[in-house]
Amino acid sequence: MKVMKSIIFITTAAILGFSTLTPLSAYAGHDVIYTSWRNNAAIGGYDAVSFYSGNPQRGEREFSTFYKSAKWYFQTEANRDLFLANPSAFEPQFGGYCAWAVAKGKLAKGSPKHWYVEDGKLYLNFSERIRDRWLADKNDFISKANSRWPEILK
Rank of each mutant, 00 (worst) to 15 (best):
P56K: 00
W37H: 06
I152P: 10
I15Y: 06
R129M: 13
I10N: 03
P23F: 02
D140C: 03
N146D: 15
N39P: 10
Y123T: 08
L84R: 13
Q75V: 15
S143N: 12
L84S: 10
G17M: 01
I7A: 08
L16E: 02
K104H: 12
L153F: 01
S19K: 06
A41E: 13
A28F: 14
A136W: 11
A108N: 09
Y46I: 11
K121Q: 13
F66E: 08
F83C: 04
P112C: 04
Q57C: 08
A26L: 14
L16V: 09
Y27P: 03
I33V: 15
A85L: 12
Y97K: 10
R148W: 00
T22Q: 11
A89R: 14
W134R: 12
A42V: 06
S50C: 03
A78V: 10
R61Y: 15
A48D: 11
S25C: 06
F51S: 01
C98G: 07
T12K: 03
K71G: 04
A103N: 13
S64K: 00
Y123W: 08
T22D: 05
A101I: 11
G54M: 11
A41H: 08
F83I: 01
A26F: 15
K144W: 07
A28G: 05
Y67L: 12
R58F: 14
P56W: 01
H114N: 15
Y52Q: 00
A85T: 11
P56N: 02
S69G: 06
Y67D: 15
N125T: 11
I8T: 05
R133D: 13
I7K: 01
L24W: 05
V102M: 10
R61C: 05
E91Y: 01
L16F: 11
A89N: 12
Y123I: 12
K104L: 08
A41I: 07
S19E: 13
S6G: 11
F94R: 06
S143R: 10
L16R: 02
T22Y: 04
L153I: 00
I142Y: 02
D132W: 00
E77P: 07
P23V: 04
F51V: 02
G110I: 13
I130K: 04
S64N: 01
S50Q: 02
D31H: 12
I142M: 09
N139G: 02
A101H: 04
E128K: 09
E62I: 14
R61D: 15
S127T: 15
H114F: 10
S127M: 07
W115K: 00
I8Q: 02
K121R: 14
R131A: 09
A70T: 03
A108E: 10
V3C: 09
Y97N: 07
E62C: 04
R133L: 09
P112D: 03
T76H: 05
L16Y: 05
S25W: 12
W115F: 11
L84Q: 13
R80Q: 11
F90T: 03
A89I: 06
